[in-house]
């Protein structure tokens, strides 16, 4: 049965290069792709610059951020054994967003392009640390959720306060746009900044894969299998903070990917929480890349924010979730 699902995963993986190709040929300017590819990285020709310096880093960033969000969502749902869990539940996204907002709010002079993302990643780790401390030693999944909801609510209140007292309409717009997420005007700088954190997060989650498998039998069973102590939950939380924090740091908050994607691919991995991590990363990457292709092809006076697109995908998913529950299907 498991083998029967592999073609679906292979297809998912194969769709990413195809979507990448679609992303490279999509955009407001029509380019000669073979000539731009032949022109190479260092070419100063317009088509080559558009391909190598604008479209390629943006598409790769969409893959990276989507992958991080999908993986983070799968890890959260696995650890908390809650189908409605997503990275935002533990305040990871809010922590990163609040740090970024405070920077936007105070309009700190631009010293370096790294300041905002570095602060945002710090904010994500700070939020997770607060949740961990609040939940206390040996906290159960439900206590972690409760602590996460409390911290997330507090961070959301601080964000609302920042919006309320935004020093100008411009600052308010900055904050709102940040909360809607965007991949526009991002380049290799942002990609290279996020990459090590997301890879580090993926490695931590990889190390915690068997813990997630054991947790699916219940916390007591996981403890009896040797997964006791603080090490394993910390691995998962650290992995989520690194991966999702870095994703939010470079792209703003992009909702619903972490929530929706694990549900979509769970049947493909036969509910295996460890394999779900990688399947969700693949599906998250594909979903965000497709959403970004929609964004770059959208014609309008203002940029369509990618967070708005994922929200449009996410909301109908909830309708489907409710209908599924009414039919008596397991989530």
């Amino acid at each position: 049965m498991q083998q029967n699902n592999n073609p679906a995963l292979i297809l998912l993986a194969a769709l990413i290069p195809l979507a990448l190709l679609a992303a490279l040929v999509s955009g407001p300017v029509s380019i000669d792709l073979p000539a731009a590819l032949a022109g190479g990285w260092h070419s100063e020709a317009g088509d080559a610059v558009i391909l190598w310096q604008l479209r390629l880093p943006r598409a790769l960033l969409a893959i990276l951020v989507g992958g991080a969000l999908g993986m983070g969502g799968a890890a959260m749902q696995g650890m908390l054994r809650n189908p409605l869990a997503e990275p935002a539940l533990l305040g990871v996204s809010s922590g990163a967003a609040l740090a970024a907002i405070l920077l936007l709010y105070y309009g700190v002079a631009w010293q370096s392009g790294w300041l905002l993302p570095v602060l945002a990643i710090g904010g994500a780790f700070g939020a997770v640390a607060c949740v961990w401390l609040l939940a206390g030693r040996g906290a159960s999944a439900s206590r972690l959720v409760l602590a996460g909801v409390a911290i997330n609510a507090f961070l959301s209140a601080l964000m609302a306060l920042a919006l309320n007292y935004a020093p100008s309409m411009f600052a308010m717009q900055e904050i709102v746009f940040w909360l809607l997420g965007s991949l526009a005007n991002r380049g290799w700088d942002q990609l290279l900044l996020a990459l090590p954190f997301i890879l580090f997060g993926a490695v931590l989650l990889f190390c915690a894969r068997n813990y997630l498998r054991a947790l699916s039998l219940g916390e007591a069973s996981a403890a009896s299998l040797g997964f006791r102590g603080r090490r394993y939950p910390l691995l998962v939380l650290g992995g989520i903070a690194a991966a999702v924090g870095a994703a939010v740091a470079v792209a703003g908050t992009i909702g619903f990917v972490g929530l929706v994607v694990p549900h979509l691919v769970r049947p493909l991995v036969r509910q295996d929480p460890a394999r779900l991590l990688w399947a969700s990363a693949l599906a998250g990457a594909l979903l965000l890349l497709l959403a970004d292709i929609l964004v770059v092809n959208f014609v309008g006076a203002q940029e369509l924010r990618i967070g708005a697109v994922t929200a449009f995908i996410g909301a109908p998913f909830f309708f489907w979730l409710i209908v599924s529950v009414r039919r008596g299907q397991a989530l």
Binding site: L104, G107, A109, F170, E174, F177, S182, N185, R186
Partner: peptide
């Protein structure tokens, strides 16, 4: 002069 997402481009 100041940091702003709006001026990222």
């Amino acid at each position: 002069k100041d940091f702003a997402i709006a001026h990222l481009a």
